[in-house]
Design a protein around this nucleic acid. Structure first.
Lengths: 165, 165
DNA sequence: CGCTTCTTTCAGAAATTTGTGAAGACAGGG
DNA sequence: CCCTGTCTTCACAAATTTCTGAAAGAAGCG
């Protein structure tokens, strides 16, 4: 029964999961290729794969891997490591950082807030519409603070439950 | 100086805001038409517009309005009301409900969780990959609980600051 | 210093998504 | 019971996005 450590167990099962989970990510707004690459990394044993491995498992061209990885790195969902002494690059899911990136989306929220502030100013803070926007803005500011606190609590919770990975 | 209540002040300013804020929403994953319709509602004085008004302000066809509104209603970001005694339909942003819909995304999170659970099972809970997925799953479960609590706090905070709208 | 291996960039083909016009459906009002 | 006004659905056209193959660009290694 034992698990031949190092090799993925049932490649088909893995693939099924990858595709299915990637589909969810797509539905949530992620572009397809990045979603697939990400899911593949997530379900790999080490959490690290090379460009070639990704291309092979997902049956996509090097170009597609390159594009997807760039996207994911920009979103801070993976990091790229240069294997010293080799031209190979390795991409890694940061075990405990990627979901912070997902959950935060700090930059995005900031831009929303900026947009809303402008809106309040230009529609007039005293108008009904202005007031509605101001309330929305307040909500995002609130969330921003809360999420930060929540992440702190998560780290504690996580450590209790999993030990620090 | 006063604000001619009822009429939007500077239609151009409103439009600028609508388009700019909609663009942010698009970037965050919302389809374009729904984003524009939503922004238009958000920046209207009453928070309620008819299909015709939307089409006129955004320069889009009735078909486009129909599609966008259906999408937004499914996401619980607007609600539709039938003006009794008229065939006109009115669409409303729920002042304080839409961001709950945004923040919750409960259904989405649930599906992610389901996907992850399957993944853990099929990759094997004892494998490194399985453990990674399990941790991710734990994270989402954690977030789900936290968000609920957060929303409670928000309602309190909101009431203090704005009175119950 | 040139060879080899891997990655990135670029232009185009293919597929998907998006919005329109036109026809159909539904509901009130005469 | 038909007419009118409003929303929805459908099929198609247009635009955008997405992925590939090919060529150029780095970086180690002999």
């Amino acid at each position: 029964m034992a698990e031949p450590a190092g090799a993925d167990r049932d490649p088909e099962a893995v693939s099924r999961f990858v595709e299915q989970f990637a589909a969810q990510l797509v539905e949530a707004g992620l572009p397809r290729m990045p979603a697939r690459v990400f899911a593949a990394l997530l379900s790999s044993d080490t959490g690290v794969l090379t460009s070639a491995e990704l291309g092979e498992r997902l049956k996509i061209s090097p170009a597609a891997v390159s594009g997807a990885v760039r996207y994911l790195a920009q979103q801070h969902m993976v990091s790229r490591e240069r294997e010293p002494g080799s031209r190979r690059e390795r991409y890694r899911v940061h075990g405990d950082q990627w979901y912070e990136a997902l959950a935060n989306r700090e930059t995005v929220i900031r831009r929303w807030e900026d947009g809303l502030r402008e809106g309040v100013a230009s529609l007039g803070p005293g108008t009904p519409a202005g007031r509605r926007l101001a309330e929305t803005l307040a909500f995002f500011e609130f969330v921003e603070k809360e999420v930060e606190a929540m992440m702190g609590r998560w780290r504690v919770h996580r450590e209790e439950r999993f030990g620090r990975g």
